[in-house]
């Protein structure tokens, strides 16, 4: 019993220490002067690595999810003769919840894990240590552009996801199931608010971008420098960032749309 309590306490302390290390990493990576010697090339390369490479999975999943939403929504709504509200249902679901959340989960799986693995590999092959010996702070040169790139890329990916998903829903709803295109769009436009729905979705995506890349970069730096260590760190990135995204989504939804 006592040893169980002790173990619980130790786990708690480990978790607290982990949060501390992650916080220190973020602070050290973000604070401090911008080093122009690195130029914009590093950020561009990371945007390419994190953003452009994630585009395919985001677009394909977006179209499919939009199509499924339209199909499911239609079968429910048509019973009440309210299938013209399909556009409203699909767009609100996507903009408020599904878009940012699913895009963030895909982003964690695609880009987050790749970031962790890349940084972990750099650590294992002593590249980070070599940077330190050359006199470069790896937090500034490795962590900072990756964090920035993730934070920039995530809102973009989420909006692209929303767009292709709505287009996918149009494809199924209008072209296949025969919902009137005019009422589809006008219903959507009447119920979607720019500030409330579109912008809150952007804010959510931004917040998720911060959390997912932060976890990914931190896990990379914190990985045991062994092949095994990299693989556990990669797994941890995906698990932790998915959980963090879902938990934050609930919090943000409660703040943004909750009863006041």
């Amino acid at each position: 019993m006592l040893s169980y309590l002790q173990r619980l306490g130790r786990t708690g302390l480990d978790v607290a220490a982990g949060f501390g290390r992650a916080g220190i990493l973020l602070a050290q990576a973000v604070w401090g002067p911008i080093d122009w010697r690195y130029g914009p090339g590093l950020l561009l390369r990371q945007l390419h690595f994190v953003g452009v490479y994630s585009l395919i999975i985001i677009v394909v999943s977006g179209v499919l999810i939009g199509m499924v939403l339209a199909l499911q929504g239609y079968t429910v709504l048509v019973r009440f003769g309210a299938e013209s509200a399909l556009g409203q249902m699909v767009s609100l679901t996507l903009l408020r919840e599904l878009g940012p959340v699913v895009a963030a989960l895909l982003f964690a799986g695609r880009a987050g894990s790749a970031l962790t693995a890349e940084i972990g590999l750099m650590k294992t092959t002593e590249q980070l240590a070599a940077m330190e010996m050359i006199g470069v702070d790896p937090l500034r040169r490795v962590a900072r552009p990756r964090l920035l790139a993730g934070i920039i890329a995530m809102p973009i990916l989420a909006q692209v996801f929303n767009m292709v998903a709505i287009l996918g829903a149009v494809g199924v709803g209008v072209s296949w199931l025969g919902v009137d295109a005019g009422s589809f769009w006008s219903n959507m436009q009447q119920s979607v608010e720019l500030g409330e729905d579109v912008m809150n979705g952007v804010i959510k995506a931004f917040a998720f971008g911060v959390v997912v890349t932060w976890i990914a970069v931190f896990e990379g730096f914190d990985a045991e420098p062994t092949p095994e260590g990299i693989s556990t760190a990669t797994t941890r990135t995906v698990v932790y960032s998915s959980l963090a995204v879902l938990a934050m989504d609930f919090l943000l939804t409660a703040i943004m749309f909750g009863v006041d």
Binding site: Q159, V160, N162, M163, S186, Q189, Q190, V192, E193, G195
Partner: peptide, 16 residues
């Protein structure tokens, strides 16, 4: 493009 699509086509630019 995606953001302007959402702003113009989806929200119909109904500002608060």
């Amino acid at each position: 493009v995606a953001l302007s699509f959402l702003v113009i086509q989806v929200s119909g630019l109904t500002f608060a």
